[in-house]
Design a protein around this nucleic acid. Structure first.
Lengths: 115, 115
DNA sequence: TCATAATGTAATTACTATATTACATAAGAG
DNA sequence: CTCTTATGTAATATAGTAATTACATTATGA
C-alpha cells in the first residue's frame, strides 16, 4: 500500500457521511445514487462528491445500469488497513493500553545508552 | 466510538507524516519532540501540529520530562478501528472482494420487491 | 419524438488544513 | 544569574474540502 493509497483511504473514512455511505451501500448492495442521497440532509451533489472520494479510495465500486448507477462496497482496502496496522503494532497489541511509566523507564535507559 | 472520535482518528491517520510519526514513536517509545522532528524535512512546528492532531485522536500520549516532552503511542484507538470495521463487514470478509455481478442480480430482485 | 427522471458537470463560497517565520516561555549547565 | 537548548504560541500565506445552485447530459417510456 503506497502513501497515496493510504492517504486516500483514511481521508475517505474521515467523514461521518462517507462512513455512513459505506454502511448503507454495504447493507444494500446495488443501491442507486439517488436512493442513497435520500438518506442524507445534504444535497445529492454533496453525496456524489463523497462517492467520488470513496471511489478514489477503492472503497466503493459502481456500474452503470441504464440511467442509474449501482453502487457496491469493496472491502479489500479495509483489509489492507487491518494488515498494515495490526502487524505494525502486534508487539504492543497484547497490553491494549500502553503503560507510560514502564516505557518511560525504558526510554531513560535508552537515552543513557545513546550517549 | 462516536462520530467525532472516528473523524479525529481517521483524519489523524490520513497524512503520511503522521503515520510515520506513529511508526517512529512506536519504535522509539519516549522519544522527544526535537529528536522526532529531525526525521522530517518540514519544520519542528509542523511536526508539533501533527503531534497535536495525533494526541487529539488519542494515538499519541506525552509526558513532560524536564525541558523535554516524551512521546508514546497508544494502540487502543487502532484496535477500535479494527473492531468497528471488521465486525461491520464480517459478512463480506470471507470473499475479500465483492462479486459485482451477483450483487447486481440481488439488487435487481430487491428493486422489484420494493415496487 | 417529447417529457421525465437519473445522473453528471461547472462555478462559487465558506471553511479547514498544512506549512511557514518570528517570538515567547521553561528547564538545565556552568 | 546567564547562556543554551527544548518546547510552546501567534500571526499568516497557501492550498484543499465540503457544500451550494444552476445547467447539461443521458436513458426510459408514452
Amino acid at each position: 500500500m503506497t502513501d497515496e493509497d493510504a492517504d486516500a483511504l483514511f481521508h475517505a473514512l474521515a467523514h461521518a457521511h462517507r462512513r455512513r455511505i459505506v454502511d448503507l451501500v454495504s447493507a444494500q448492495p446495488g443501491i442507486t445514487v439517488g436512493r442513497l442521497a435520500c438518506y442524507f440532509d445534504v444535497s445529492r451533489i454533496a453525496v456524489m462528491n463523497h462517492l467520488a472520494t470513496l471511489e478514489r479510495a477503492g472503497l466503493v465500486l459502481s456500474e452503470k445500469a441504464g440511467a442509474s448507477r449501482r453502487l457496491y462496497v469493496n472491502t479489500t482496502p479495509i483489509q489492507a488497513i487491518y494488515e498494515r496496522w495490526t502487524n505494525a503494532f502486534s508487539g504492543h497489541w497484547a497490553s491494549h493500553l500502553l503503560n507510560i511509566k514502564r516505557a518511560s523507564e525504558q526510554a531513560a535507559q535508552k537515552e543513557k545508552a545513546d550517549e
